[in-house]
Design a protein around this nucleic acid. Structure first.
Length: 545
DNA sequence: GCCGTTTTCGGCCCGACTGTTTTCAGTCG
């Protein structure tokens, strides 16, 4: 089948343009030229019509798109890329671009490292740091060299795991040949984990039929398990794990005279195999309540399932709003109006606008308030005016109290001084919680999965203090953060600390990430009433006041 | 590279922070 060639999306065009911006930056080009590409990428991504269908003349009418970039967009629409981009790609080694992931190394530094020291790989970088050659560069000293050396060590040690979006990119390829309904993604992905080592999939598809297509997938850590509908239940169970959970479950089965295998429960006495089409049937056969995948970590869930007293877990449908969103007023790419529309689409009662304090002047807050008042009249989903206020290096907040007092909700977050020692960084957070206007501590550990470790904050002290001050802790639902980790959620819940699930959405598509945050909350055994944003608007406002 | 126009080139977002500085450059959000 010839199948119509799919028109290239605005997102894909924007992606090419921002790649161009990155490469230009490393190449040492004028930063305004770099920004021009970034701006153009943003514009394209935001269009309400497909740019691929536009003529060059139509494209130049879009602000931020001139003759040159318009021509390049036309080229992308036809060939998928453009000449200048490909030329740059051949000039700049791929291993060099990866080094942007080293903490403390930005594009300008990378340019210097490359041009002046000939550094192209992480090995080169570590060698140069060890030989004290970095400090010979203009604007460099011993401290900067040490910062980068540390960043390089972390970069090398970065875990070989995938974030959920990385997994989903692989799964998108899988969909091309595994029909909907014929497979389930299992493993730690199904258990809602923040990072995934191995993509596990159980399928009833015909092995011979898909083998060839399978080879075409960049199958990093992809593990397909073939089964048939009659055995689907045990296949799912065994493939979902976790290992500890399965060990304990196998004990339960053994006590009843069975061995647990992906093919079924086989009788120890006569070898007969009972097969199960669903997990529920397996649990039921073993005299247990069905255990949600997120709980399967052997943290006491099996015992509770045997007593039929599993906790009531929060569900995505319990969520009534989002507590963390950015707009164009700071570093977001969405307008207030777009946020309200997204909220309506999701059936939310409210979304809290929480732009960065460092990027929003008090006058702008007043303007946001006026705009929100107008927008709220046209939408079911009500916007609230909040802020993500910096907890600065010295522990003070980014706004004075008189500004904070006028906001509907205040998230306080750390965005600097990541290297401070445990006591200092912890005291910063504790002092923020002391402020009566602070409602939530945002992304409490500051980790960026695969990029930056958590700062040295002592979460047990934070949780204890949150219980005293009545401050909520955020479960940041961004798949690049997923901060807090489940055991801390569990601990906070036990102490009676409220958890606030926020997507930290910078563009409308990211409100979808709520599901990741809720999965994490479930891993932390949270019930609906542990989660702040399951409250109806009026109750939320009551809690805030 | 784009824009606006004072049609031929200068300005383009920014605040906190850090390290290198003695007045600034680069990173990060």
């Amino acid at each position: 089948m010839m199948g119509q060639k799919k028109e290239i999306t605005n997102r894909e065009i924007a992606d090419r343009l921002s790649t161009m911006a990155r490469l230009l930056e490393i190449a040492g080009e004028d930063r305004h030229k770099v920004q021009a590409y970034e701006r153009a990428a943003r514009r394209i991504e935001h269009l309400s019509f497909p740019a691929a269908g536009c003529s060059e003349e139509e494209l130049t009418r879009i602000p931020g798109i001139g003759v040159r970039i318009a021509g390049q967009i036309r080229e992308i629409a036809v060939t998928g890329t453009f000449a200048e981009l490909e030329t740059l790609r051949t000039a700049i080694p791929g291993s060099l671009i990866e080094l942007l992931g080293v903490a403390g190394v930005g594009p300008r530094t990378l340019h210097l490292l490359w041009k002046r020291l000939g550094i192209e790989t992480i090995d080169d970088l570590e060698r140069a740091a060890k030989a004290r050659r970095l400090r010979t560069l203009p604007g460099f000293g011993a401290k900067k060299e040490e910062t980068i050396a540390k960043g390089a060590r972390q970069f090398r040690r970065r875990p070989d795991t995938m974030t959920r979006p990385q997994v989903e990119a692989v799964l998108a390829n899988l969909r091309a040949f595994l029909p909907e309904g014929e497979y389930t993604v299992t493993g730690s992905y199904r258990r809602g984990a923040a990072t995934i080592d191995e993509i596990e999939v159980v399928t009833i598809a015909d092995k011979a039929a898909v083998a060839e297509s399978l080879a075409t997938i960049d199958g990093a850590h992809l593990n397909l398990r073939f089964t048939d509908p009659a055995r689907y239940g045990t296949a799912l169970l065994c493939s979902t794990g976790s290992a500890n959970f399965l060990e304990k479950l196998a004990d339960v089965a053994r006590k009843k005279g069975y061995r647990l295998t992906p093919d079924g429960l086989s009788s120890i006495s006569d070898g007969r195999v009972h097969t199960f089409a669903s997990e529920e049937e397996v649990f039921s056969f073993l005299g247990m309540a069905p255990i949600p995948p997120e709980l399967r970590e052997d943290r006491g869930e099996i015992e509770l399932a045997q007593r039929l007293t599993l906790p009531d877990l929060v569900d995505i449908h319990d969520v009534r709003g989002d507590l963390h969103a950015h707009t164009v007023a700071s570093d977001g790419r969405q307008s207030l109006e777009e946020v309200a529309e997204a909220g309506d689409t999701r059936g939310y009662e409210y979304i809290v606008i929480t732009d960065h304090s460092s990027r929003v002047r008090p006058e702008t807050l007043l303007k946001q308030r006026d705009a929100i008042d107008k927008i709220n009249q046209r939408h079911t989903c009500q916007l609230l005016l909040g802020s993500e206020v910096d907890i600065r290096s010295d522990g003070t907040l980014g706004y004075p109290n008189r500004i904070l007092a006028d906001l509907d909700l205040v998230i306080a977050s750390i965005h600097s001084g990541f290297g401070q020692n445990q006591d200092i960084v912890t005291r910063r957070v504790l002092s923020a919680m002391e402020n009566e206007h602070v409602d939530i501590i945002g992304h409490p550990t500051g980790r960026l999965l695969g990029k930056r470790p958590a700062y040295a904050v002592d979460l047990f002290r934070v949780i204890d203090h949150a219980a005293e001050t009545g401050t909520a802790l955020e479960i940041n639902a961004s798949p690049h953060r997923l901060d807090l980790e489940d055991i801390y959620i569990w601990h906070a819940k036990k102490k009676g600390v409220k958890l606030a699930v926020g997507t930290d959405a910078h563009r409308t598509g990211e409100f979808e990430n709520m599901r990741y945050g809720i999965a994490l909350a479930r891993r932390g055994w949270c019930a609906p009433n542990d989660i702040l944003n399951t409250l109806p608007l009026s109750s939320l406002q009551e809690w805030l006041s």
